[in-house]
């Protein structure tokens, strides 16, 4: 392994240890388990629909609301909005930024670690939900619906982590209030604007993530139209195009971050932009 790759791996390992220390993993674990438990409760206690295929709608609906639209934004927000600021506030950034590893590579290593962990947490949460939903039906978990429902959502979740993670990391570089700004952005843009039809919705990442998540849902359900109507999503774009759009947004945000991190001075008392 080359010196720089090894150094980046060391930074990533430090970042992972930092994120996995303290109460953070417990909070996220509790959230993911809570969501999975919700899946169990809904499947167990919801009145049986006339058409058994409606259970599939419910499954998709829950994945959409609980994971893609909520945890899918919150988890990367928590992990990436303070990527540099957390170390700066704790006084440990100086150890990384006075080393012979370019600052953009330090940032990139941290971003990859944070993004990887966020994607893993989301995927584990969705899997736990899948199992809980099956258990709620009184059946043992099976592979049914995995390829048509679960996997597209896992892929959309990972893409969401890339897109949102890169955006929140960039905002977090510019201001101390990255997390709160991320919450406002997440709510206004990704939950409110994403539900406004036509052009407005196309300006949000959520539109493209939904397109990926629902790309194969019709293969597993009896009525694609019904699913789409239920979700209010009528103008999905092809999954490949959607994924590419998200990746381009993520790429631009990462590039902007790399430029910013090499220009901003993260030391001293007053040069760091206050709140």
């Amino acid at each position: 392994m080359s010196g720089q790759a090894g150094a980046m791996l060391a930074v990533a390992e430090l970042e992972l240890r930092r994120m996995l220390g303290g109460p953070r993993p417990w909070v996220l674990g509790a959230l993911a388990l809570g969501v999975a438990a919700l899946g169990f409760v809904v499947r167990r206690f919801a009145p049986a629909p006339d058409d058994p295929a409606a259970w599939g709608f419910l499954y998709v609906l829950l994945l959409m609301f609980l994971f893609l639209q909520t945890l899918g934004i919150l988890v990367p927000l928590l992990h990436t909005s303070g990527l540099v600021r957390d170390d700066l506030e704790e006084g440990t950034l100086v150890y990384l930024f006075t080393r012979p590893l370019p600052k953009p590579l330090v940032f990139l290593a941290k971003l990859l670690a944070a993004g990887g962990l966020s994607a893993a947490i989301l995927a584990a949460g969705m899997l736990a939900f899948h199992v809980a939903f099956a258990l709620g039906a009184g059946a043992s978990p099976s592979g049914a619906g995995v390829t048509t429902h679960l996997l597209p959502f896992v892929a959309a979740g990972a893409l969401g982590v890339a897109g949102y993670g890169a955006l929140f990391a960039f905002v977090g570089l510019l201001t101390r209030r990255g997390l709160v700004l991320g919450i406002v952005y997440g709510f206004v843009s990704e939950l409110v604007l994403a539900n406004i039809p036509a052009v407005v919705r196309q300006l949000t990442l959520m539109h493209y993530l939904r397109s990926v998540a629902l790309s194969r849902v019709a293969d597993g359900l009896s009525s694609e139209e019904e699913v789409r109507e239920l979700l209010g999503v009528l103008d999905l774009v092809p999954a490949g195009q959607a994924a590419l759009t998200v990746l381009v947004v993520a790429g631009v945000a990462v590039l902007a971050s790399l430029v910013a991190v090499s220009r901003i001075e993260f030391a001293g008392e007053q040069q760091v932009e206050g709140d």
């Binding site: 969501v35 409760v41 206690f45 009145p47 609301f65």
Partner: peptide, 12 residues
């Protein structure tokens, strides 16, 4: 979100 989901599922 949990309230909305539970409402939709348990009290359709």
């Amino acid at each position: 979100v949990a309230s909305r989901v539970l409402g939709l599922a348990l009290f359709p």
